Simulated assay, not measured.
Amino acid sequence: MLDWHSATEKHRSHLSAFSCTLPDHGYFDDEEGFVCHDYPWELEVQDYVRSHKPPVHPPEFLLVGYDDVGLAAVLKMRVNRLDGYALIQAVAVAQRASGQGLASEAIAQAERVMRKYNLNDFVVAARIDPRNHAAKSAFTSAAYSYDRTEDGFDVWNRLWRP
C-alpha cells in the first residue's frame, strides 16, 4: 500500500520527472510524418501529470502515492458540487510499479476525497482511451461501468454513495 498525500510544492520535481510509459517520450515516424508512441494514452497521461504545478485547491485534487522507491502513482480529479459530478482526470502508475494493482489503489483515493468532503450521491466519472485495457480493468474492479463514448474516449462512471 502506498503512502498518499495531497501534492504540494515539494512534490513538483517528482511530478515533472514522473514516468509511466516506456519509452518516456514519443518518436518521430518518418512514414507517418508525426510523433508516435506504442501506448499513446500512457504518454498523454504522463505529459498531463508532468505539467502540474501543485498545490491545487478544491474543487481540484492532486494526490500522490509513494512507495519505498519514490513516486509510484498519481490521481487527479475535479469535483463539481453544483452538478453532483466528479471527474477523475488522471490515474497514473509509474512504469517501474506497473502490474502491482496501484491503479486500483489510486482510484480508491477518489473515494477518500469524496468521504473527506462529505460528497454524497455524486456521479464519479473517468474518460478512458478505448485501447487502455488496464484502465478499464481497474475501473471495473472499482465498480465503475461503461456509460458512453464521448470525443473519442470511453466514459466510465459510478454513483458514489458512502
Rank of each mutant, 00 (worst) to 15 (best):
residue 24 D to Y: 11
residue 109 Q to V: 05
residue 49 V to L: 06
residue 47 D to A: 11
residue 81 R to Y: 11
residue 110 A to M: 08
residue 21 T to N: 05
residue 46 Q to S: 02
residue 54 P to L: 01
residue 53 K to C: 11
residue 123 V to L: 11
residue 112 R to K: 15
residue 71 L to V: 05
residue 67 D to A: 07
residue 110 A to Y: 01
residue 132 N to T: 05
residue 100 Q to R: 15
residue 66 Y to R: 04
residue 58 P to Q: 08
residue 59 P to G: 08
residue 55 P to N: 03
residue 73 A to K: 00
residue 122 F to V: 08
residue 85 Y to A: 10
residue 35 V to M: 12
residue 62 L to D: 02
residue 86 A to H: 00
residue 122 F to L: 11
residue 110 A to K: 01
residue 17 A to Q: 15
residue 116 K to V: 13
residue 62 L to G: 01
residue 48 Y to M: 09
residue 76 K to R: 13
residue 94 A to E: 06
residue 34 F to M: 12
residue 22 L to E: 14
residue 70 G to D: 03
residue 61 F to L: 06
residue 26 G to A: 12
residue 73 A to M: 01
residue 131 R to S: 14
residue 100 Q to A: 12
residue 123 V to H: 08
residue 28 F to L: 06
residue 95 Q to D: 14
residue 22 L to M: 10
residue 15 L to T: 02
residue 32 E to H: 13
residue 84 G to I: 05
residue 25 H to P: 04
residue 104 S to W: 05
residue 109 Q to T: 04
residue 115 R to I: 14
residue 44 E to F: 07
residue 107 I to M: 09
residue 88 I to E: 01
residue 99 G to N: 03
residue 92 A to L: 02
residue 95 Q to W: 12
residue 113 V to A: 03
residue 105 E to I: 03
residue 97 A to N: 07
residue 85 Y to G: 07
residue 81 R to T: 14
residue 122 F to C: 05
residue 100 Q to N: 10
residue 46 Q to E: 10
residue 71 L to D: 02
residue 64 V to M: 07
residue 125 A to N: 08
residue 130 P to T: 06
residue 46 Q to V: 04
residue 115 R to C: 12
residue 79 V to E: 01
residue 115 R to V: 10
residue 97 A to S: 13
residue 119 L to K: 03
residue 119 L to I: 04
residue 51 S to L: 05
residue 39 Y to C: 09
residue 53 K to W: 10
residue 32 E to M: 13
residue 17 A to R: 14
residue 33 G to H: 10
residue 62 L to N: 02
residue 27 Y to V: 09
residue 31 E to N: 14
residue 121 D to R: 14
residue 60 E to V: 08
residue 86 A to M: 05
residue 19 S to L: 08
